[in-house]
Design a protein around this nucleic acid. Structure first.
Lengths: 327, 327
DNA sequence: TCCTAGCACTCTAAATTCCTGATTGCTAAA
DNA sequence: TTTAGCAATCAGGAATTTAGAGTGCTAGGA
């Protein structure tokens, strides 16, 4: 267990290091604590033995270790209120009722990326409560047609499909069948339903059913698939811990690797913090993420920044937009 | 005017520098030319006096100046044939007839970005030959509805609009009117037509016409607006001329500045090369761009790379995809 | 038992110097 | 007109120096 004073020292070091990114020496701390630098040094030595602090070299000041950050976020961090300015910026987005939810998410995360200088990720999926409302088909020419799918929450997805030698009649028969059988189905169940209920029926009534079935299958796969977007990637360039081009390259490539990003999905509903090796992105970053869920969508939002991250502020911001979105 | 030998030397220097990015010394050239390094040095001095070559410091080898590159592309460059492998990669995209043109463009430029390690930009607009085919409206709930617009070339655009207190009846009356009056109009003329022909009619027959008119106006503005996409931005990181974080930052921000990118629009139909200060992006890069035009779309594609760019290959590639797209 | 002043020690980061190798410009002879 | 030869220049890396910040430890004081 840490003493009162040790906690104060750890807290001061973490906060100072987050602010200035320079190893923190004993002198600076003793000013705040009314005791001599030697005393602080002794305490720092103990904190280092406990694995909460590190040195960059024998005679440098101290830097928080991952364990130190962990202790800080678990026990020491105090959440201050968001600044009025930040709230104001975000409100401009939430008050704009013309935007689709996915736009609201992207835009609010753009604002967060902007005010924090970190990078954010949205992993967005239409939720179970999103039901198929209507599909329609517009022929473009003899070979290509556009399939448009609308859900009852106002999502629209469309796709051009090519059907050589399938008559319009066949197509509209299929559309009619699908509409009859499938309207009202939650979109995350469509693929299954299509395969096990629709396919046999189409096969029975419609010629060329293979071709048509596949085309529609593609469209529905598209509409129910997850959407990953990364906002503020370039902010990586702003942090001195990513000052060399190789680290930047590596992080960029991770931010573009869909597999890696889908890993980001969060399982519980709190705001969770993964410091350094606790996350799968990179030992140099911290990922803070949370789930959201509305009637239309559900997904995960995450903020990625250096371990030396403004934990306090990011947690606050995520909490705020989560509450706003979930209404 | 340059002598034969001077041209050879300039050409060798440009090609060598493009390949290795190191100042080229006289020794290397004299091997190719069967003359002594002193002779080459004398010629290089003359070329430098003409402003075609530069030195990085008093006793370095020579590097082409912008004027030198310009002379090279205007007079010395020979276009070799594309490699079979490159053609093959591109063909996989052009042969996939399921893709919309804008996808074909993006995907083929992804391939180009990949094989060249440069960055590409597509500035894409629906062309005059794209005519409105149909608009339809799906109500989502009492306040929000989805407007879907389809063109005769198979483009679909949709937008959610919010209409508090407008009856469904009013909406469908408006849709019917617009459909009657406007179907078949080229999409780049829709805004004008909407304002001068449709607005008065709606005003006459439909209550709440202001609200409705504005909503539709927004949708059509969206559909006829230009689309900018940047592919392979991270390739910037691969070139040693952008080895410091500040240059990277500055280029990234330019690649995200829509205004700057819209500047990229090309006025004539050839493949044009803008070296260093000849372009508006950055004195450190070369931009090679050309227009394309099909019945569906028209726009500009551009490749951005260091001045030390593989001119030959890029011109070939652009030429190839331009021809493929224009059919 | 806890705190602190003092001091020797360590290490970084920046400045300085030194060295090597590549390349040049110039000159004089072929 | 070309070439061989040579002194001069400079980048870039290695080695050295210096200054300053910070530490650990010890011994004396509360």
């Amino acid at each position: 267990m840490l003493t009162q004073r040790q906690e104060s020292i750890l807290k001061l070091i973490v906060m100072e290091y987050i602010k200035l990114a320079k190893p923190v020496g004993s002198k600076l701390i003793c000013k705040e604590l009314n005791c001599s630098s030697a005393t602080v040094r002794n305490e720092m030595m103990l904190l280092e033995e406990m694995g909460l602090l590190e040195k960059t070299h024998t005679s440098s000041g101290r830097v928080p270790s991952e364990k130190g950050y962990r202790y800080y976020v678990d026990n020491l961090m105090e959440l201050k209120k968001l600044s009025g300015e930040d709230v104001y910026k975000l409100q401009t987005v939430f008050n704009n009722s013309q935007l689709e939810l996915s736009d609201v998410l992207t835009k609010s995360l753009e604002i967060i990326a902007d005010i924090t200088s970190y990078t954010s990720v949205v992993l967005d999926a239409k939720s179970h409560d999103n039901k198929l409302k209507e599909i329609s088909v517009v022929p473009v020419n003899s070979e290509i047609l556009v399939v448009i799918v609308v859900t009852d929450q106002g999502y629209v997805e469309h796709k051009n499909i090519e059907l050589k030698g399938v008559s319009l009649e066949e197509v509209s028969k299929t559309v009619k069948l699908i509409n009859e059988l499938i309207v009202g189905t939650p979109i995350d169940e469509i693929s299954a339903k299509l395969e096990f209920e629709i396919k046999p029926v189409i096969a029975k009534y419609v010629k060329q059913h293979e071709l048509l079935y596949n085309a529609f299958y593609d469209v529905f796969t598209d509409i129910s698939s997850k959407n990953v977007s990364v906002v503020g990637k370039n902010n990586i360039l702003k942090h001195q811990e990513f000052g060399n081009v190789d680290k930047i390259k590596s992080l960029f490539s991770k931010l573009e690797d869909r597999n890696l990003l889908e890993n980001i999905e969060e399982t519980n509903n709190d705001i969770n913090i993964y410091i350094g090796h606790e996350n799968k992105m990179s030992p140099d970053v911290t990922v803070i993420k949370t789930n959201y869920k509305t009637s239309k969508d559900e997904g995960t939002i995450a903020i990625i920044g250096p371990k030396r991250m403004d934990y306090d502020k990011v947690v606050n911001l995520l909490d705020y937009i989560k509450k706003q979105i979930e209404g």
